[in-house]
Design a binder for these strands. Sequence first.
DNA 1: AAAATACACTGTGTATACACAACACATTTT
DNA 2: AAAATGTGTTGTGTATACACAGTGTATTTT
Lengths: 234, 234
Amino acid sequence: MPAKDRKAALLADLKRAILTTELRPGEDLDEVAICARFGLSRTPVREVFRDLDGLGFLDLRENRGPRVAELSHTTLRDFFLAAPMIYGAVLRLAARNATTPQIAALKLAQEDFRAALREGNPVERTLANNRFHEITGEMACNTYLLPSFQRLLIDHARIGMTFFRPQTNDMAANLSEASAQHDEIIAAIEAGDEARAAQLAEDHWNLSRHQIELFVMPTALDVPMGSFSRSSPA
Amino acid sequence: MPAKDRKAALLADLKRAILTTELRPGEDLDEVAICARFGLSRTPVREVFRDLDGLGFLDLRENRGPRVAELSHTTLRDFFLAAPMIYGAVLRLAARNATTPQIAALKLAQEDFRAALREGNPVERTLANNRFHEITGEMACNTYLLPSFQRLLIDHARIGMTFFRPQTNDMAANLSEASAQHDEIIAAIEAGDEARAAQLAEDHWNLSRHQIELFVMPTALDVPMGSFSRSSPA
DNA sequence: AAAATACACTGTGTATACACAACACATTTT
DNA sequence: AAAATGTGTTGTGTATACACAGTGTATTTT
């Protein structure tokens, strides 16, 4: 296996691991360990790190090891401020510009998403959902929108892994509604209905926000302080 | 001079040269020549290249030398589609979040811009204008908006250098109107008037578009700015 | 005992050397 | 003569070695 492919494999693997929070937000990366694991020297590995830093996956700082990009309450706030607008614009443009093969790819991604929902596989669900929205980004095909959009997708995936573990009926219902919205998005894009696509984007992110509100501001537990058992994912 | 500073100098110099089109869009860069000029080995120089690639200044391709990012009619079209929306959002958030020192910095940048206009210095004018808008980006302070915004700023600067050489009275008038708009933008931000800031953003970019109507004239995205303020998480 | 300092260690930043791929030109072949 | 192929050159990609900064710990000093 040529070094070039090992480098590409490293890039893809780190992306996947970060998107699925297998590598958690804020986690440190061991440079030499990764070198050993992928059979690469430090130079190409560090280049991959720099790429991922530019894309918003990693956070590189002087004289310190690379960290997985943080996902704080501040970034969450930024997320829900920017997402409706960017996604609205992307879906609007997607409806305007989508090609037939792109629409086919979008339907495939949605198939995978549905399958992951049925199997209750949160990792596959997240990755399929990510692919779905990535394709809408390709459809929109705007140099200036894409960088922000892709950053949103990273944290959208990580938020999904963090907050969307359907432990209640309410949450499961939300997920199937998200899936239904995907179907409507596909239909709007296929019909070239820009206004409808933009509206669906807003609906989609309002649903996400509602889901997170359930987690961030849960109904107060009716239990004395000390006897707190760990109930929700970190 | 430590190597670290030489590296930072290289980064800053390349940014400046690209923004002012001293390095023209599509131009090839000579790696070893740059190494010699800044007294650096290839490794840190290549790291700078990768950073600039991630930021949208350069275009790195496999087994080929780095090129200055292209500025084609396609990217121009994308620019005028995305700019009104992103700038509108940024100025809206700037009006919401700006701190006193940031406002002071903004006024300074505008001073420089006016000075460059008086002196008829297109390079300084472009750099001051770029700084002006960069500061509004800092004010907006949103992780997800900034990447797209900064890419817009790169090409905004390069478009300015390409199309805004005031050879007619009309163009000179446009420039002084742009300057007047900057003043109004400062006022709106200082007053925390979000709606006004958003409106001024639209006016500002309509002015730019008018200037290069001869080359491209797409319709701007019509995303309602209002959907933005309403959707802030609790 | 607490604080400050020296020192070793871990790990990042840079330089250099080598490997290899792409391109250009010249030479050969049909 | 045109096409194809071989070869030389240029320049990118990777590996390794070295330099140095940051950090933690142990020792010394007050």
